[in-house]
Design a protein around this nucleic acid. Structure first.
Length: 118
RNA sequence: CGGGUAAGACAGACGAUCGCGUGCAUCUUCGGGAUGUAUGAGGAAAGUCCGGGCUCCACAGGGCAAGGAUGCCGGAUAACGUCCGGCGCAGGUAACUGUAGGGAAAGUGCAACAGAAACAUUCCGCCGAAACGGGUAAUGCCGUGGUAAGGUUGAAAUUGUGAGGUAAGAGCUCACAGGGAGGUAUGGUAACAUACUUCUCGUGUAAACCCCAUUCGGAGCAACAUCAACUAGGGCGCAAAAAGCGGCUGCCCGUCGCUGCCCGGUAGGUAGAUGGCUGGAGCUUGCCGGUAACGGUAAGUCGAGAUAGAUGAUCGUCUAAUACAGAACCCGGCUUAUGUCUUGCCCAACUU
RNA sequence: GCGGAUAUGGCGGAAUUGGCAGACGCGCACGGUUCAGGUCCGUGUGUUGGUUGACGACGUGGAGGUUCGAAUCCUCUUAUCCGCA
């Protein structure tokens, strides 16, 4: 993952929240919006509701790890924000993987027939 | 075996595949690239409760005022409200633990309710030819009066018990006991302890104001320094009398910045970037000094530096491997959260 | 990272030189009024023990301490909220 792939600016976030679409899943919430670039930009968030800093870091790492397996199948030109819900605490990697691929299938940003589990 | 108490250790390891930050080397299409290699969270990283370094405010300053903190003694330390060793007091059968522990005999305040009274107070009681006055057939009968022994209330009521004494009483006197203050002697660096002796005798509260001693300037890495798009229009130089505004917690000094004029082309600084950013009161081991905290010395050693934030995922073996929990400028403490194990000591019980 | 504030019955919110905790309002329960409901009026309303009586114990986010006595003073702690780029 290169640095240009990470969403960083406040303006980008607020425009995605405002104008983008959102999908809820068991462990995560996904915001997405077309960005007009040739590549995807992403961000992984975990609010204080998720827990203390250890739990928040773990939530973001699990999402990041699973994004690695999914990213090649995602269409280009979108901004994506993955937000952890507090139900993610104590979950294993493949449970989160299932939740993320379900969310992406709902958005039709990903090929629905392929098996995306590692 | 059970209960308790004190001290200490570890905080997973190894292998396989994939993945991330940083340093270095090489390659490079010079891009926030690729490959290789090294390295990569804690005992509390936490709470932000104290102390310091560092940066800026003037070199951290002067005077007055106000305020904060600390408070037995000796030592350790860069410093501390921390640590070590002791003293007194309190708790515990004990091991052991706790302790904001100066001054109430400088002054002020407060002590609700209850109670007569919360400082010198007479409600009940006691006394009375002890004193003065009045009165009765008579009588402390009445007024002034004497009295804190007894009663009641309360957390607390003028040190307790006994005897003498007295009208009744009173440390008024005596004996014994208790508290406080002073002195002397002995031991100890000291706090203090023990003994003797003189004087004296009502409380509590200073985590109420206060007094005494010691001590403290403010803000913080979002500090601060450098570079610098877009936008906005300001800035250099010169002059310096006075004043105003703002910063340095209040006032007076002191000081920094801004408010003036002229000239002609640059300066300030937002987004952003870079530095600050990790080699330090450092860590490990040995020896020496010290009861200890700690200090000295020799050798060895370099162990994160991110910037939306790097340690992860899956599997196997061992195992108690689980709990609390993630560096964000850096150190020394304190406090709180928390898994497993080890050792010493105490109590109780049992066996030989 | 730094700085600051708050916490009291089911809810809002009183009570601070330390001295009866829960005033007052809302809500809730019961009773009255009404044909019925609302309004209105009255009573009760923290937890718990007790013969549901008298009365006692515990209760101001939590744990200690000072004091005769603590919601109030002191120390530690937990949660929530606010401000600073």
């Amino acid at each position: 993952m290169l640095k240009k792939d990470i969403l960083r600016r406040k303006d980008d976030f607020s425009s995605i929240y405002k104008k983008g679409k959102s999908i809820g899943e068991r462990y995560i919430v996904l915001f997405y919006k077309r960005n007009g670039l040739s590549y995807n930009r992403i961000a992984f968030l975990a609010s204080k509701k998720v827990g203390n800093s250890v739990q928040r870091n773990r939530a973001r790492r699990l999402m990041k790890e699973n994004y690695r397996f999914l990213k090649d199948d995602i269409k280009s030109g979108y901004d994506l924000i993955f937000i952890a819900r507090n139900t993610i605490n104590g979950r294993k990697a493949d449970e989160v993987n299932k939740s993320m691929s379900n969310a992406l299938k709902k958005t039709k940003l990903i090929d629905q027939n392929k098996d995306h589990r590692n």
